[in-house]
Design a protein around this nucleic acid. Sequence first.
DNA 1: GCCACGATCAACCTTTTGGTTGATGCCCGG
DNA 2: CCGGGCATCAACCAAAAGGTTGATCGTGGC
Lengths: 218, 218
Amino acid sequence: MNDIRVLLVDDHPVVRAGLRAMLSDFEGITVAAEAADGGAALAELSRLHTLGEPADVVLMDLQMGAGMDGVTATGRIKAGDAGQPAPPVLILTTYDSDADILAAVEAGASGYMLKDAPPEQIRQAVVAAAAGQTALAPEVAARLLGRIRNPEPALSAREIQLLELVATGLGNRAIARQLFISEATVKTHLVHIYGKLGVDNRTAAISVATQRRIIRRF
Amino acid sequence: MNDIRVLLVDDHPVVRAGLRAMLSDFEGITVAAEAADGGAALAELSRLHTLGEPADVVLMDLQMGAGMDGVTATGRIKAGDAGQPAPPVLILTTYDSDADILAAVEAGASGYMLKDAPPEQIRQAVVAAAAGQTALAPEVAARLLGRIRNPEPALSAREIQLLELVATGLGNRAIARQLFISEATVKTHLVHIYGKLGVDNRTAAISVATQRRIIRRF
DNA sequence: GCCACGATCAACCTTTTGGTTGATGCCCGG
DNA sequence: CCGGGCATCAACCAAAAGGTTGATCGTGGC
């Protein structure tokens, strides 16, 4: 039986070297190519495709220093931008924030592993992905289950817009003027936001919203 | 001439494997041991010491999933907790925030490299550290030089520490308790911070400090 | 049609922050 | 050895933010 052909996508040379070394030690897995960002990953997939030796699995980091990020790249791959059939994409990243997980799954990822996972767990995930199955790190699975059991209230578009202004350091009065509403309304919105995020002041709200990637970071 | 004996300290097996593979490819460098957190690093250093083959350089990550963090471990090593003479500690991490850099340098680190650096740069840094020299990543050096030329945002270490607590959403009272100082002192620090950053409230301070990467956020 | 919910506003009150002034002790560099 | 930056604290006042209640007006769903 042929080896599973893996494409590594990570912007850190150190991490790529580590994965290459780690995966090479396993039977039945070969690193077919590497890419430092999403754009390069698409190009590599196309290249492998035309060579007649397409990748069986893509191991993708989410955070890229520059170039196309992992979520976008995953979406593009699953959309067939790098040739059909699109290989399974296994996310291998450092963080397990709700927003990251959800975004990756929505983009079509078939697994989500953390970089601090033991090698054997990563190997199993690669094998599972190649077989068309999904593989979630235990931490990630627990998080998803917990989220389904008690879903968190979503912020309305207006509330997010307001929160973004709060994050720039504006006071309630300035926010009111900017949105053409009264200061009282700003305060009402804030109370609702605090309730939904489980906090009781604006800085804590920004902290939570940033960590959950509800608002964009700077 | 003997090889430079390196101790790897990183909580990610993948990264350790990558560094091991990368450093092994270089002439004159040997990976003597590995540790997954600061506590294990101290133990490994002691062990190597008693074996009569002490480490020449410690390659240390700052962020550890669990156990002793990199800054604390660096401080302990330089304090001689793992035997004298203390080997040079070269920080190899993902982020280059002012807060991280300052803390590491204060703890006694003799270099600061970023994980996305090209292999050759890392090799040179290891060699330099082993020779008792300091090695800063170009990005880090540029930031430090920029700060010297522009004495504008010269936040003290204490002020940065305080600002980080502010960014988590804590109130002045909570910050005071956490730092074992009075609320009055917290307010005084904040006034100084606002002055240096050119703002007049805590959220604006966080916004500016995050953009200037004085504090880190994710 | 009615109900739920989001967005809007007002009045009122409490708590937290911000701003100022002034003071002490420490350590470093000229 | 003296000035200056840093860290610490206090008291006080003004402003902003937080919390509560209650209200109006659309819109979209059942």
